[in-house]
Design a protein around this nucleic acid. Structure first.
Lengths: 199, 199
DNA sequence: ATATAAAATGAATGGTCATTCAGTTTGTGA
DNA sequence: TCACAAACTGAATGACCATTCATTTTATAT
């Protein structure tokens, strides 16, 4: 409906388009969606306010565009890294590690995706449900191959997604003491899901 | 600074005060902080706009007040329920179950706490760090008693908090298929952290 | 009953922004 | 070099909304 974006064609226009997106990503991260005005964005991008509306019909449509870009990016990156691994154990390790590294290198991404819960709940749901769907498929395969135990894979997928997200949060927000070595965190996690918590 | 609330003294004033809070909780949940106006709140509470400012110096101060109320509530409830259990295994089970039930019975609470990440990041950090601190203490005790393995308890605390939060999210947002029986979810979780994921 | 303070009112204010549009500049193809 | 379209400009518009304040109502204590 409102989400139609006028994709630029010429070299210069493409440049402007990308500047808008880049500026918006940084400002949304720093000040949040509601704390960022269209004028902030255009100023940061070095263009006039009106130029914004040549490409995006509204501030919200820009936000949605960025969100969709990011979610493709995350899924693609993680899927590619995980596909290189063979065993479920290695896949699990790689999945968490890729996610945390993405979050750390690109905290804007992490932040903007979570904020969608308060801007467009449907987008948020779509994102996590389709993420979960893929995850569940992978887990089901591993159950068939008898690599992992036959637990309810839907519940397991949400448990493991929860872990990744919260650790991502910890890394992004510098929660806790935080000299956090990603390898160390991933090691603790793998130890936990391999041997369990209890003696 | 801005957070000073004028606590009401008389019976009627207390009533008004509570109506403001109750209306705000529901509206913040339904439409988010930014999607809720002070006039919405006062209308819902059946009072005049100006009355709001007899008790709260600003919209933000009301939000903070609600957030603090909730975080006390959560901590108190979970701590009380967990304290009744003896073994770490039982405490862990009770902690997750209490949290999910709180989230389900009171989705506003869950939602408003997470939104704080986009409204007042310092409050959010405080909340989770102090929650984690307590959790870590409990885990450390259990390590000493040789109930659980000697993992890095800070990392473990964030892992387990992540699980609780994401499952809470799933329940609140109706993510996935969702005939979710809380007992079932908790069982899967306990199985996972008891026996691990792998064969 | 009266005085006094506490509560409540709601229209008005002022600031903030997303969005528009009439006009200008830039690039390109003939 | 000219004309035409595509890009761009930025001041103006109008809606929205937190907050104020002069005034009125209500409750209480004497």
């Amino acid at each position: 409906m409102e989400t139609l974006i006028k994709e630029p064609t010429t070299r210069n226009a493409k440049n402007t388009f990308n500047m808008i997106i880049e500026s918006a990503i940084n400002l949304f991260y720093k000040n949040g969606y509601h704390g960022t005005t269209v004028n902030n964005i255009t100023q940061e991008a070095g263009i006039a306010a009106g130029t914004f509306y040549l490409y995006f019909p509204s501030k919200l449509s820009l936000y949605k565009h960025i969100l969709i870009m990011f979610s493709h990016n995350i899924r693609r990156t993680i899927a590619a890294n995980v596909a290189e691994k063979v065993t479920r154990y290695e896949k699990e390790r790689e999945g968490l590690k890729s996610f945390i590294m993405l979050a750390k290198e690109n905290p804007q991404m992490y932040n903007i995706i979570w904020e969608s819960l308060y801007i467009d709940r449907a987008l948020f749901k779509d994102y996590y449900e389709s993420f979960a769907k893929r995850y569940i498929k992978g887990l089901n395969n591993s159950v068939k191959r008898e690599e992992i135990r036959a637990l309810d894979t839907e519940v397991v997928s949400y448990i493991l997604m929860g872990v990744a997200n919260f650790i991502g949060l910890k890394v992004v927000l510098d929660l806790g003491d935080n000299n956090d070595d990603i390898e160390h965190i991933v090691d603790v996690y793998m130890d936990l899901i391999k041997h369990g918590l209890f003696q």
